[in-house]
């Protein structure tokens, strides 16, 4: 499958990674190479093979519906790059 510059720019937009035109060009070449290489997976017959989701070793488990952690607002906020009191700040989202 071919991976063009437009697709790379779209992925960058979806992943919210800002890229210059020059970077889009560089990544396009590298990503095209990697995708060409992984295309060999098409040789494998996966008919009736279920996808492996985790290793299946840990059993899903339930626990008592009790609060076991929390009450640590200041710790949670301690690494905020910018804050006002107990709030994170972001640029204006709603006019």
């Amino acid at each position: 499958m071919s991976l063009d510059a437009k697709t790379v720019a779209k992925m960058a937009r979806l992943a919210r990674v800002g890229l210059s035109d020059e970077q889009v060009h560089t990544y396009q070449k590298e990503m095209q190479g990697i995708i060409g290489w992984v295309d060999q997976l098409n040789e494998v017959d996966v008919t009736d093979v279920p996808p492996m989701i985790g290793t299946g070793l840990a059993q899903p488990r339930l626990r008592d519906d009790q609060v076991t952690d929390g009450n640590c607002r200041d710790e949670v906020l301690s690494n905020a790059p910018d804050r006002e009191g107990p709030f994170y700040t972001v640029p204006k989202v709603v006019e």
Partner: peptide, 19 residues
């Protein structure tokens, strides 16, 4: 993972992982 490629890549890779 993007729409249109999920089955061709991610799902197939997970099946190969089973193998």
């Amino acid at each position: 993972l993007s729409s249109g490629y999920y089955d061709a890549y991610y799902l197939r890779a997970q099946k190969v992982r089973t193998l």
